[in-house]
């Protein structure tokens, strides 16, 4: 189709690929090449008496590894400082992922497989923890977004909360004709349908103590002894409670997926900070006790 060419810089749809496949797996290849080069060097380097962090080759790998760690943590800054220029956070994340994985090879070779109960091994262990949490992050990022999208369909989190609130208002109105015991059951739903909370609560989508579920169970029992007019009212309330159940389930699923998408960062980020500190201690101690 003919059209006057567009002026000015802009992104285009050809770059519509996720961070893992960015630029034809460029950083995966770089990471792989770095790992292989380190391994080949490890085999070829003639160090005595045995491969060790203190040998010339060990220092080389150590320097590369330390610089990598510092650069990898810089992603946190890159993400938050929106400067001008032709950079994309996607490219950074792509490099972060593959170079982070390559770091395992480099650090392991750097250690010369000498482990002990010391600050050096602590730094190594923290690094493995960071990488493993990161790998979980990749898995989460690869699979969960689709589930998040399918669950929320076109509603926003705010709308989900609004829906539940509006159902609560309707429940309040619909419960007016009920007697005290029946109303108490409805109140369970109004007051005890907690969403969110601690980590494990956020992971459960059908908590046993959910007020709405309890209210439904109770009303099922009470309906048998209810009068004709109360039955009709209970019918209305039950229909609303069913809808509220569904709305709660959607919101809880939403929160669960968001928790799973974010939880790993609760390990990844503090462990990275700890790693930076342990790394500093590791480097300082090595130089002091040279």
């Amino acid at each position: 189709m003919a059209r006057a060419p567009r002026k000015g810089k802009r992104s285009n749809a050809q770059v519509h690929v996720g961070f893992l496949r960015h630029a034809g797996y460029r950083w995966a290849w770089v990471g792989l090449a770095l790992s292989i080069a380190a391994a080949v060097g490890y085999v070829l380097a003639d160090v005595h008496p045995r491969p060790n962090g203190g040998s010339w080759y060990g220092y080389t790998l150590g320097t590369i590894g330390a610089l990598l760690i510092v650069w990898l943590t810089a992603l946190g800054i890159r993400k938050r400082v929106i400067t001008k220029g032709d950079w994309s956070l996607k490219a950074w994340v792509s490099a972060h992922v593959y170079l982070g994985i390559a770091l395992v090879a480099i650090a392991t070779l750097h250690s010369g497989l000498q482990f002990g109960w010391n600050i050096h091994t602590l730094a190594y262990a923290l690094m493995i923890l960071v990488v493993l949490s990161g790998v979980y992050g990749i898995i989460a990022y690869a699979g969960l977004p689709k589930a998040l999208s399918n669950n929320r369909r076109e509603t926003t989190q705010k709308q989900m909360v609004e829906t539940i609130r509006s159902l609560d208002r309707q429940l309040n109105d619909a419960a007016q004709p009920l007697n005290q015991r029946q109303a108490a059951a409805v109140r369970l739903s109004l007051e005890k349908s907690k969403v969110g909370g601690g980590f494990f609560r956020r992971l459960s989508t059908r908590p046993m103590d959910c007020g709405t579920r309890r209210a439904l169970r109770k009303l099922k029992g009470l309906i048998r002894r209810a009068s004709e007019s109360e039955r009709a009212a209970i019918g209305n309330v039950t229909a609303l409670l069913d809808r509220k159940s569904a709305a709660l389930l959607q919101l809880r699923k939403h929160l669960r997926i968001r928790t799973l998408l974010g939880a790993w960062l609760a390990i990844h980020v503090p462990a990275s900070i700890a790693l930076l500190m342990a790394l500093t201690a590791h480097i300082v101690s090595v130089f002091i006790y040279w």
Partner: peptide, 9 residues
């Protein structure tokens, strides 16, 4: 530019 996963285009 600020999308970490490449979802925003």
């Amino acid at each position: 530019r600020a999308c970490p996963t490449g979802a925003a285009i």
